[in-house]
Amino acid sequence: MARVILETRGLTKHYGGVHALEDADFILHEGEHVAVVGDNGAGKSTFVRQVTAVEQRSAGEIFFDGQQVAFSGPLEAREAGIETVFQTLALADDLDVPSNLFLGRELFRWRFGPFSWLDRKTMRDRTMEALKTTAVKIPNVDNPIRNMSGGQRQCVSIARTAAFASKLVIMDEPTAALGVQETAQVENIIRGLKERGIPMILISHNLRQVFDLVDRIVVFRRGRIVASLRKEETDGNDIVSYITGVKGGEVNA
């Protein structure tokens, strides 16, 4: 089996008395694409928020790239190589596409502290390159993204993640608000990641999409992982049975 990229042992999160996530044992291997599915409130997003350190876990251990980690915040997680597309967009509406893509990691002609001179041409060229692979339709990348559609903005957000992806990509419902065509574009980006061998965790409600894109499906129910199935050994009905609780005791992912 390939090298383990991400492993959680006994990952637990309590919000006051609410046990949002309990004892999650999860493993992701190199190059593997895994879907996380489950009903609303099953603990999917909570799981992601613990891994990316948007929140601090109540208990459990996280191993990333062979080392035990305790990120203090999402920034540290990103610096370690975890790129995340969050449900809420992290884009600056008044900036154009290249500025958003390179937000916080600008390229410079020459450096002079906060007054470093931006290398706008290279950033723009790389943006065009990154967006071309996604087939997203954007009339003018030099316009502020304020006036773009939800789909175009989501594509910018995902292109940013894909362009800088290094060790692990996490997407939390990337196509929830998108139209048919835009969803197809996002799925193309995800296939591109697979070809590049970059592992991914995809949170999705869309079972068609899940079976199209990933190798393995992990089912959350009531804060616990209840199933971890290879795509070939299961089908839609089977997954739905786990999601709704018709099937399933506890297993380890």
Binding site: P74, L75, R78, E79, F86, L89, A90, L91, A92, D93, D94, L95, S99, L103, G104, R105, E106, F108, F112, P114, F115, S116, W117, L118, R120
Partner: peptide
């Protein structure tokens, strides 16, 4: 033309996003 201005616009536009981006 400089990082200074880019950060001003980014923070004024979406402070949470700017923070998330490591600014």
């Amino acid at each position: 033309r400089t990082l200074y201005g880019k950060r001003c616009y980014a923070i004024g536009s979406n402070e949470a996003a700017a923070r998330m981006s490591g600014i």
